[in-house]
């Protein structure tokens, strides 16, 4: 009796929740907004699970829903001015960055400053570790577009964090 397709679906959803929360937090940098986003995503996915096609992965489907809700909420927020709570990410208590190391607080600010379509991509790949093809499906973009956004995001982060490929040439702002 336990088991069966419904149970499998909910198990797969449960498995994805920690990653969805991490991704939502990285996107929004606000713990409450992020969990609201994940809750909306889960409620929609579970209510519409009859629409899910088992040919794709539950994970890709959940990320797609989450991103759609996020974009819609940003459009709504954009009209009344968005607030970003920077306190929600703790400043790491690290000493001054060593050459070749990346200062986490600088990186966090640099991610916030990325254009949204680059941020979505770089977090799906570098943080969530999704295969390129799966990320392209989630974002409904061709693979080539995904790769160029990923490349642009990475060089923007590199410039913004002041870290060059050669540690001894590290620029100081």
């Amino acid at each position: 009796m336990p088991g069966g397709p419904v149970n499998d679906f909910l198990d797969q959803v449960e498995t994805c929740v920690p990653a969805l929360r991490r991704y939502a937090r990285a996107l929004t940098r606000n713990a409450d907004l992020a969990d609201d986003l994940v809750q909306d995503c889960l409620e929609r996915a579970i209510a519409r699970r009859g629409l899910f096609r088992p040919t794709g992965s539950v994970r890709a489907w959940l990320f797609t829903i989450l991103l759609n809700i996020y974009r819609n909420s940003r459009r709504a927020a954009g009209r009344r001015g968005e607030t970003v709570n920077l306190d929600s990410v703790a400043e790491p208590a690290s000493p001054a960055p060593q050459p070749g190391h990346i200062a986490l607080a600088e990186l966090a600010r640099a991610i916030d400053a990325l254009p949204i379509e680059q941020k979505e991509v770089v977090l799906l790949i570098a943080l969530e570790g999704l295969p390129y093809a799966e990320a392209a499906t989630i974002l409904s973009i061709p693979l080539g577009t995904l790769m160029s956004r990923l490349g642009r995001a990475r060089s923007a982060l590199r410039l913004a964090t002041g870290v060059t490929a050669e540690p001894h040439l590290r620029t100081v702002k």
């Binding site: 920690p18 937090r25 990285a26 570098a126 943080l127």
Partner: peptide, 19 residues
């Protein structure tokens, strides 16, 4: 550098997934 960027992203946000 790309790998350090990925590692740094994990250092920033993996604690959320572990909560």
């Amino acid at each position: 550098l790309m790998r350090r960027q990925s590692d740094a992203l994990h250092a920033l946000f993996d604690p959320v997934a572990a909560e």
